[in-house]
Every structure is written in structure tokens, then in C-alpha cells.
């Protein structure tokens, strides 16, 4: 792979300027996707390398309990962050499953969001936790709800002159349960066959909040709106679990590819979401 242009900006302002000046260049933020694909694709015209940009790194609490994660924050920092462990434990769990330690040291949350693969490990979690993506351009900064960010197969709401600056996870209700499951081709260093993440909250025996993010079952990470609708307002227990699973069958059309089959993906994501509902229904189970 030989890119003809390369710039390593020293600040977000410089990065935004470089991005605006070279809208056909790609942004490098870890290169763990880029290098895998290097032999398979034409070399990029140029590279804006923001991986080591200090302003883009870091995990901090903001706005009364939300957690802001800089786009260039590597997964190792997510895995080891006490703040993430307390507020978004399923993001740490997802990060722990990404590649090997070396990949976790290089790969970043901004890179995962930017590549927007349907099997991006963190993306269902961002859906379940209702994250926001912060985008900067010469036109200013805007915040996009993550659920609106992926628009198709590896296409996103990112404009050609925009840079992903941070991901913000809002404070969850203290009573909410966070659940996550990855089913991969093997137990480590695997690409997912399906992924599911959920935030479920029960009050007085009924579900009052349900967000379910799914990966590898559509052309992009998606919220399971049908299943969520089947859960919210419904009582805890098997019937709701079954209803959620049935709703998934109506709203999902996963594909068969080299990693799994359509029937397996559907059946497994149904089983996993069903299990989430049952787990959240059980008052005794610890988080």
C-alpha cells in the first residue's frame, strides 16, 4: 500500500483543516482495518493520520454523568477505564473481545465508528447505550445520535469534510441492566456471527425502557425496534421474552456468508435477546 499524501495533524483544528482540504483522503485512526484491507484495495489517495492526536484521546465524565470518549482512544484504555467499568460495562466487555491485545492497543473507538462495519464489535453497544457521535468540520461541530449514524453498508452520516471527534454515552438510569453477547467464529480473535447489546429497565414488574443493538444481522448495526416495542410496557417473564424473539423474526433478514448462515443468525439472535429479557426479568441476578 502506498498512499501519495500523508499528513499528521497536531491539533483537532489542523485535522479538520486537513480533512476539509483533502476530502478524498482517508482518516487513519489505528489502521487495524486499513492494513487488513491494504492488499485487497487500491491504495488511498492520501491519509490524514489522527491516531496519535492527543486531543482526540481520553475518557472523561461530562454533563452530569455522561461519558465522553475521544475518537482516538484505543480499546485498551476502554477496557481498563474505571469510569467505563462503572457506567458502560458492556462497552468494556465488547472492547475486550476485539482482536488480540496488540489490536486493542492500536484500534480505536473512532476507527470502529468510522469504518462502520456491520460486524464492528462496539457498535451494537453504542446503539444500546444511545450514544452520540460528535463531528467537527470547518462549518462547526454537530452531534448526531449514533442510531442515525450508520446509513447503509459501510456508509455513514459523516460528511466528506467531517472528522469524528468523540463518542458520548449518556448516563443510564441506575436501575437499568446492561447486557451484551458476542457469538463469534471462535473464542478469541474472531469476527462475529451475531452480536447483541441491550439496556433494559424494569419497574414494578414491567419493562419501562428497552434498547437493543444488533450486529452482523443487517447491512449495518441496527436497533431492534420491533423487539423493543414488544418489550416496553410488557411484564417481566417468558411471554415477553418470546414476544421479543418473535418480533425479531419479523424485522430481521440476516444473510448467509462465509462466517455463518441466515437461519443460524436469526435463531441465535432470537435466543440471545430472549435470554436478555429473562435475565433482566430475574431480580436476583447480579449485574
Amino acid at each position: 500500500m502506498t498512499a501519495t499524501g500523508y499528513v499528521r495533524p497536531a491539533s483537532i483544528a489542523e485535522a479538520v483543516a486537513a480533512r476539509a482540504a483533502h476530502p478524498d483522503w482517508i482518516v487513519l485512526c489505528g489502521a487495524t482495518d486499513l492494513m487488513v484491507e491494504a492488499p485487497l484495495r487500491p491504495a488511498p489517495v492520501g491519509v490524514v493520520d489522527v491516531w496519535a492526536l492527543a486531543e482526540l484521546c481520553g475518557i472523561a465524565e461530562v454533563d452530569g454523568g455522561a461519558v465522553r470518549i475521544g475518537a482516538a482512544t484505543p480499546w485498551r484504555d476502554v477496557v481498563t477505564s474505571p469510569l467505563i467499568a462503572a457506567r458502560a460495562p458492556i462497552l468494556a466487555a465488547a472492547a475486550r473481545e476485539i482482536g488480540a491485545l496488540q489490536i486493542q492497543a492500536r484500534g480505536t473507538i473512532g476507527g470502529n465508528v468510522g469504518t462502520s462495519s456491520p460486524v464492528g464489535d462496539s457498535l451494537p453497544v453504542l446503539l444500546a447505550l444511545d450514544a452520540t457521535v460528535e463531528l467537527a468540520s470547518p462549518r462547526g461541530t454537530r452531534r448526531v445520535p449514533y442510531r442515525d449514524y450508520p446509513t447503509g453498508y459501510r456508509t455513514t452520516a459523516l460528511a466528506a469534510d467531517e472528522l469524528i471527534v468523540a463518542i458520548t454515552i449518556p448516563a443510564a438510569h441506575p436501575g437499568a441492566r446492561q447486557l451484551w453477547r458476542k457469538v463469534g467464529t471462535r473464542r478469541a480473535q474472531s469476527i462475529s456471527k451475531i452480536m447483541a447489546a441491550a439496556l433494559l429497565r424494569v419497574e414494578a414488574g414491567r419493562f419501562v425502557e428497552a434498547r437493543i443493538g444488533l450486529g452482523a444481522v443487517a447491512n449495518r448495526p441496527i436497533r431492534a425496534a420491533g423487539a423493543e416495542a414488544a418489550i416496553v410496557g410488557a411484564p417481566v417473564g417468558e411471554a415477553t421474552a418470546d414476544a421479543a424473539a418473535a418480533a425479531l423474526a419479523a424485522e430481521l433478514t440476516p444473510i448467509t456468508d462465509v462466517r455463518s448462515t441466515a437461519p443460524y443468525r436469526l435463531a441465535t439472535v432470537q435466543q440471545v435477546v430472549r435470554r436478555f429479557v429473562l435475565e433482566a426479568s430475574s431480580p436476583s441476578s447480579p449485574d
Binding site: R186, R187, Q189, S190, I191, R259
Partner: peptide, 9 residues
């Protein structure tokens, strides 16, 4: 995609 077991397996 042509996977073999890892130590974790």
C-alpha cells in the same frame, strides 16, 4: 474467515 482454533478454544 478460514479459522483454526486459538489457545482460547
Amino acid at each position: 474467515n478460514c479459522i483454526v482454533p486459538t489457545f482460547a478454544d
